[in-house]
Design a protein around this nucleic acid. Sequence first.
DNA 1: CCTCGAATGGAGGTAACCTCCCCCCTCGAG
DNA 2: CTCGAGGGGGGAGGTTACCTCCATTCGAGG
Lengths: 200, 200
Amino acid sequence: MSPAAETEAPWARRPKRADGRRNYDAILEAARVAFANRGTGASLEDIAKAAGVAIGTLYGHFPTRETLVEASVREQLDQLDQAATTLTEEDGDALGALTAWVRLAVEHCSTYRGLASFLAGSAHTAGAPLHHTGVIVHKAVAPLLAKAKEAGRIRTDVTAEELYAVITAAAWTRENSPEQVDHSVRLLAFVTEGMAPQAG
Amino acid sequence: MSPAAETEAPWARRPKRADGRRNYDAILEAARVAFANRGTGASLEDIAKAAGVAIGTLYGHFPTRETLVEASVREQLDQLDQAATTLTEEDGDALGALTAWVRLAVEHCSTYRGLASFLAGSAHTAGAPLHHTGVIVHKAVAPLLAKAKEAGRIRTDVTAEELYAVITAAAWTRENSPEQVDHSVRLLAFVTEGMAPQAG
DNA sequence: CCTCGAATGGAGGTAACCTCCCCCCTCGAG
DNA sequence: CTCGAGGGGGGAGGTTACCTCCATTCGAGG
């Protein structure tokens, strides 16, 4: 986090000129609304229209759909990261802390319909805007996972990678569940049990 | 399965005229290739072209993408159904039979990239071509599930519905896993453990 | 051979993606 | 305050894919 050597992402940097920033923010806000209503596949031209901006402007700020999706969830991601830190520092139930965080992560990964697919798709593609997201999640879980292992509450062979796969799968299930019956809850419950040591 | 009272699907019935059947088959074959290469989102116009047929002809036989997807996996589905019957009749490890079938189902549900999403999407939409698929899967697991419960090898509160959610989630994970590292295997392992009685 | 209607072809309307490039407006230097 | 540079904006238009529609063709049964 050295402020000088900041390796900032080359895509979707908030512009320096005032009008640029105004449009950037308007697009982002419109995108959040559109993604919430129609999923990550929402029409970019509609988003531009809703933001009161031409399509070229949108592409100027966000060269691909993925960069726009990434930007629209970045804040939530930071919260998730902080939550992990908080939960790690708390004393007490190490397994509870881990599962609580996982539930939180699932919720965030299913903010928009289609988000889970984006995340899974770029998880193994270095350089993708949302790959960055996956990396942060990995770093965030690591301490929680380690603590749960030390406490003997979880198998020692469970990796952060696997946990990420579980999280995205649960998020996807949540997106695809019918109203009022979130199957991801049960899925997570089963997986949690299955990750306990000597379960077999 | 009464041959007279056959409630056949109104979509994508194999046509009676010879030229119609020829085209129907050609389209289906081209679709299988295209879906295998590009996923269920493959261009329908390309499929028509590959089948040596005009786009209107394709739509004549398969009014929606979903009907085409359904038709292209129907045979596999029947095999899956039969496998369930066979495994149910076998004596021996009831849990093993169930998990073996589940693994088979996951494989079939991830035949094409995007298939899992189609299945999950229409799972709760009565009337959808692929809803039919979900129903058959439900019927197929029921006996296997019952047997495993009787043998005390699985929690009695696990429903076929939940199992279907697990299967599609695992299939989706498989589709999204990087080459050579199929995370769905581990996911299934965890879930299986978690479904055991008195695991907690 | 003839008739009926199933099956076909493919033009064309619609929607969304994305690029390109001219023009304008902001901002900082003078 | 003025002015010049260039970052930023606009939006037309090429491209691809979806899906519909209907005049025409052709197969099957009589």
